[in-house]
Write a protein that binds this DNA or RNA. Structure first.
Lengths: 206, 206
DNA sequence: GTCTATAAGAAGATAGAC
DNA sequence: GTCTATCTTCTTATAGAC
């Protein structure tokens, strides 16, 4: 990894731990192994480093959204796999989702940084809501909608069902960001949630 | 309100909007209507102002917990009212809970400040989790547990049921903190959530 | 308790040698 | 591209008059 990118990497780590304002250009330089003035050969200001991190994230998540077909105009075509979903498969889906968000190093650091900076301006607020509310609900809604359409889950509103599936995952995830020592507890609760979710929605409607 | 308390009030507003590090003692003084050095007659440092806000919050929430009997050793004695709960009453419960957290000025500012500062140290992280995860789940669990005990809701795990009731409320609440213009949308989703929750858990178990 | 003046130091950024 | 030296500005905090 070249210096220019190592700066972004170390800055993201520091920003996610202490917030933008509590990280000094000297801290970033030290982690990279250069002196602070050298940073300015790569980025014209501290703010430019932050902006570059946001830009990089936009690229990554746009690419991911494309891979996951979140924005595809024919999502059904690629979701056959979810048409029938056993309870164990649904638990695996939830655990995989949880584990990816919680343990992927880049995803985790970026989410924590955005959590700290979300109220700084409207753009960051909208980015947070898109990445951690609207996009997951859209993606999960597509999958659960497929299962519902094939009769595996019964609901009058896929949107509400998806919220009820995802919100507990979101809440446990943000808790683990704060208190990682409660991850084991969170995973047990997560399993209980998914099993109960599956039973609730598998019941034939009256 | 005396100057000493007005300082806490204005500081909390600013901290909740910009975060501790982005607020300067001069900003606080200006809002209070005095010059920055005068602050130091009331608090020995900027950090002392922050600590005083945390202390005040601890007092308030401890008092509230006592009022709500969250920590009472005989919660059942005061929860008769929840033994039977219609769908409309449950919607009112959810809306009241949501509205209190979202619109109470002190509660909202404090939550936003803690959101920004939650990763600063372990104590703040634990405070956040206690106030916005453990305490609400404990309180709501007590109420829903009463309804379940009297046969109004059917579940094998009150804890999981309570999480499924509260997590969507939490997620919508934190979304409204970021994007208040989506409050109307959030309230519609909230109503859909509670109606569906009620129907799911009211169904007789097989 | 509030003010003006100012100290003390931190932090972002630039200049210019190598 | 990296360094040392330095500038400028900002920020917390104190001193001392009123």
């Amino acid at each position: 990894m070249d210096t220019k990118h190592r700066i972004l990497d170390e800055a993201l780590t520091l920003f996610s731990e202490k917030g933008y304002a509590n990280v000094y250009v000297n801290d970033i330089a030290q982690k990279v192994g250069i002196k602070a003035p050298s940073l300015y050969k790569h980025y014209k200001s501290k703010k430019a480093i932050f902006d570059a991190i946001i830009d990089e994230m936009n690229d990554r998540f746009a690419k991911q959204a494309k891979d996951l077909h979140i924005v595809g105009n024919d999502p059904k075509a690629d979701a056959h796999i979810y048409e029938t979903l056993s309870e164990e498969e649904m638990i695996k889906l939830g655990f995989d989702l949880f584990s990816y968000y919680l343990h992927d190093d880049y995803v985790k650091r970026f989410r924590k940084m955005l959590t700290i900076e979300q109220f700084h301006n409207k753009e960051l607020a909208d980015t947070y809501t898109k990445l951690y509310v609207d996009d997951p609900l859209s993606y999960q809604g597509m999958l659960l909608g497929q299962v519902a359409a094939s009769g595996g889950l019964n609901t009058e509103s896929v949107d509400v069902m998806t919220l009820q599936f995802f919100a507990p995952i979101y809440m446990l995830l943000t808790m683990c960001d704060r208190t990682p020592e409660r991850e084991e507890e969170a995973l047990k609760i997560l399993e209980g949630h998914i099993r109960q979710f599956n039973r609730l929605y598998s019941r034939k409607r009256g």
